[in-house]
Amino acid sequence: MHLTLQQFSFIAVAGLTIISAALVVTLRNIFHCLLFLALAFLGVAGIYLLLSADFMAAAQVLIYIGAIVVLMMFALMMTHRVMSTNVIQTLGQWWLAPFPIAAGIFFALFRVLIRYDFKLKGVPAAEPTTGIIGTQLLTRYVLPFELASIVLLVAMVGAIILAKEDKPDDSP
């Protein structure tokens, strides 16, 4: 086995990601899960970098780690009162249904990726992707772009309303 530096670094990053993800779904202390989730996200960003997807890496770090994980942290804090660390977090019979299904799906996917011959035309050289993505967003994919902004608006409004407390003297 002769690994190039790229491959080796890929294996390291991928392994980090996968191990972190595994820890996310198995740890008992949910805060630790959240932290490992952040680490997994970081690993994914690394994978993006290995793919020369510089914009995606940056976006991944900013949005996922910077916003979503923080949001989850807030939510965890707010619901922490009842969910102590002594409570078993995983279903008692995880080996009955979840694990076989997950394993089954993995094996199916694995079989696909081994057998299938992707008609690749070779790998081009790396280029900065941000400009291309931006151009595409505003020309070819401008409609989904606008709709995405509406989705974000709706989500924001919805989240605010959903999470609002019902105070009796609340005035519209």
Partner: peptide, 10 residues
């Protein structure tokens, strides 16, 4: 849902 997914893949 996931069982269905598995079946489709199968």
């Amino acid at each position: 849902v996931f069982v269905g997914l598995l079946m489709i893949i199968g």
